[in-house]
């Protein structure tokens, strides 16, 4: 039985740990603390937790002000609202003045499920990675999320950390796993195709690689968790080794992880590429698994794209 955990639960745990170690750590939320798990920090350190109410623009502005006077600030809400509603504030009040604000966004992507399209951010990676010098991270599992939160707290400057809602299989079994900014980890090595995946799609990519073995296709699987800065070296390396690439993400096909990979390949080592992503449409209500299947964000979706890209070599 595969061990499962939700990144946001580990986010909450990491905050409590950070709060204990560093009294400069403060946490803000916009009335979603029980969902984002900042409630765990609020319970442990109520004097350093600020609920800003349902006001995401103000949430980011207040986070900027706290950081301006030396606080290490974590600001959370759902990915949709904290990236979309507050984009101008993130750009002008946080990223431009290079303030030490860590935006930890939960409930990203279609696996939000039943709440439907208004709550399913499929554009946040696109609009965040375009901001100069903002670090954009997507953990593959709860263990990586935990590491990223600690890394971000220890690293000056703004971060956007994107987490999905549900419990997903742990990719990293080893608690010694160390996250490195700008580095991508090769999880499986094969010579025929490189699957570069992010977030919940990493585990799906690993399962797809196992299936591909039966078809005598040896796949490399890369966890692209540091979307920005991006690991040009590893992406080029796997492209050279396999000659074709498939990207996989729980995000729009436009300007997300696949596009980031395509930018690297186009400029450095163009190879045939296919993208597994939501095809520029809105989500809808449904069970997370049903939505993933509808949008082909599953093992079969990856297999199909791998077969296609291998044929293009």
């Amino acid at each position: 039985m595969t061990e499962m955990a939700a990144p946001r639960d580990y986010y909450g745990k990491a905050l409590v740990e950070l709060g204990k170690k560093n009294e400069n750590v403060v946490v803000l939320d916009a009335d979603l603390s029980s969902s984002t798990r900042t409630s765990m920090f609020a319970k442990a350190y109520p004097e350093r937790f600020f609920n800003i109410g349902i006001a995401e623009q103000n949430l980011i502005g207040i986070a900027a002000g706290l950081a301006n006077l030396g606080k290490v600030v974590f600001a959370s809400s759902f990915a949709m609202f904290i990236s979309g509603r507050a984009w101008d504030q993130v750009r002008n009040s946080v990223v431009y003045p290079k303030l030490n604000v860590k935006i930890a966004a939960t409930h990203a992507g279609i696996t939000v499920g039943e709440d439907g399209a208004t709550h399913q951010a499929l554009e946040d990676i696109a609009i965040m990675r375009v901001l100069p010098s903002l670090n954009v991270l997507v953990p593959a599992d709860a263990i990586e999320a935990f590491q990223m939160i600690k890394y971000a707290a220890a690293t000056p400057g703004p971060f956007y950390i994107r987490m999905s809602r549900g419990a997903t299989p742990l990719v990293f079994k080893d608690s010694d796993y160390i996250f490195e900014l700008g580095k991508s980890k090769i999880l499986v090595e094969g010579k025929d195709v490189a699957i570069i995946a992010s977030g919940i799609m990493v585990d799906v990519a690993l399962k797809a690689a196992a299936e591909l073995k039966k078809e005598n296709i040896a796949a490399t699987v890369v966890n692209l968790s540091s979307i920005k800065p991006i690991d040009v070296e590893t992406i080029v390396k796997v492209a050279k080794a396999t000659g074709c690439v498939v990207s996989a993400e729980e995000h729009s096909v436009y300007a997300g992880v696949g596009s980031a990979v395509a930018e690297v390949l186009a400029l450095n080592y163009p190879v045939p590429m296919e993208m597994v992503a939501v095809q520029g449409v809105f989500g809808e209500s449904g069970k997370p698994e049903e939505l993933l299947d509808k949008h082909n964000l599953n093992v079969n979706g990856i297999l199909e794209k791998v077969r296609k890209v291998v044929a293009r070599k």
């Binding site: 103000n58 986070a63 900027a64 002000g65 504030q89 009040s93 003045p97």
Partner: peptide, 25 residues
């Protein structure tokens, strides 16, 4: 110059955050 501003409406939120930081400290 204590803070970047220009996009109207954002400055007061920043001041609130700074005020909170001073209270905390």
């Amino acid at each position: 110059i204590e803070m970047s501003t220009g996009s109207l409406g954002q400055g007061l939120s920043v001041m609130v955050g700074m005020g909170l930081a001073l209270k905390l400290d």
